[in-house]
Structures are given as C-alpha cells and as structure tokens.
C-alpha cells in the first residue's frame, strides 16, 4: 500500500470538486459507490456522537450522484449557477489496510464556501471515512461517510459535495 498514492488521490479529488470538474470526479467513483452524510443530533456524551441511522443529508448511489451532476450541466441549476467558490481542505489523513484491493482512509475536511459578492462565507467541518478500491484504472472511491461537526447545518443548502 502506497500512502503517497492515497494522499494524491484525495488531493486530486478535492481539486476536481473545487474546480467544478464534476464529470471527472464521477470517474473516480466505483459503480457500486455508497456516499452518505448522516444527520446528527445533540445527545449526552453517554449516547455517543448522535448520528441518526435512518436520515441523511446525502444517501447516494451512482445513479443519484450522476443525477446531481447532470443537473449542474443544465442551464437552470440556480443554486450553483453562478457557482459557489469552494475549497476542500483535506488534512489528518490516516490509511488502514482492509484487504488486497481495499483501504480505509480517514481524513478531516474543512469546506469553505462563498457565494456571489457577499463577503460572508460558510464553513463546514467534518471527518470523512472512505473505502478506496484498487482497480485497473487506479484507485477509486467505493464508499464515503461524512460525519459533519454540526447538528443544524449552517449553510442554506447542500448543493455542494464533501
């Protein structure tokens, strides 16, 4: 397992998202991709991180992610046209082997978003837990769970990907 390859994968992926190259981003996903951002609630410490099992901000497969990207290609995706300016800051990367073909990759994400000429911006902080698969075409993202560090989401929509 080459940790540098994994790091490069994550940085390349972040670049594609921030540059709006969403079709190229789709190419990094396996056909059986599972992409989930669960809803969180505030609970006492004894109840753990407050992750809601049955409701998510995102719960996607290949079809639904393609639908979201196709939407952005229409001339009427008002929520992201004009586009947000985003920056995916990917840090604290840890890689764990799973089997010959798979690794689990933990990373911290700080996602900056600004829109229009407003000087205000939104920040979303999260931990991502990914499963990457080694394929003939290089590493691909097979699963991602994004655990947001908020209960109430502080941005007006999640028209952006983590």
């Amino acid at each position: 397992m080459d940790a540098l390859e994994i790091l490069n994968f994550l940085h390349h992926e972040a670049h594609l998202l921030d540059a709006g190259k969403f079709n190229a981003w789709l190419e990094l996903l396996t056909d059986d991709i599972r992409y989930r951002v669960p809803v969180r609630v505030t609970r006492e410490r004894e109840h753990g991180p407050g992750i809601i099992d049955h409701m998510s901000h995102y719960e996607e497969d290949r079809y639904s992610l393609e639908m979201r990207i196709k939407r952005l290609e229409t001339e009427a995706a008002w929520a992201e046209d004009p586009p947000s300016r985003t920056r995916h800051f990917v840090t604290n990367v840890r890689v764990e082997p799973i089997d010959d073909r798979h690794v689990r990759v933990y990373s911290n994400l700080l996602l900056f978003r600004s829109r229009g000429d407003s000087p205000n911006f939104d920040l979303l902080s999260a931990e991502r837990v990914d499963v990457l698969r080694r394929t003939d075409g290089g590493w691909k993202l097979a699963a991602r769970e994004v655990v947001l560090d908020v209960s109430t989401v502080p941005t007006h929509n999640l028209a952006i990907l983590f």
Binding site: E60, H156, N157
Partner: peptide, 19 residues
Amino acid sequence: LTYLRTFGTSGVFEQDDAE
C-alpha cells in the same frame, strides 16, 4: 430516498428554492 434526494438540505428541488 426519494425525499432526501429531492427535498431537505441537499434536495435537488429544494436547493434552488433556497437560492
């Protein structure tokens, strides 16, 4: 799944309403 992909925080309908 229909709900959370069309409405709610990331919904492909609702995100344009918010805008």
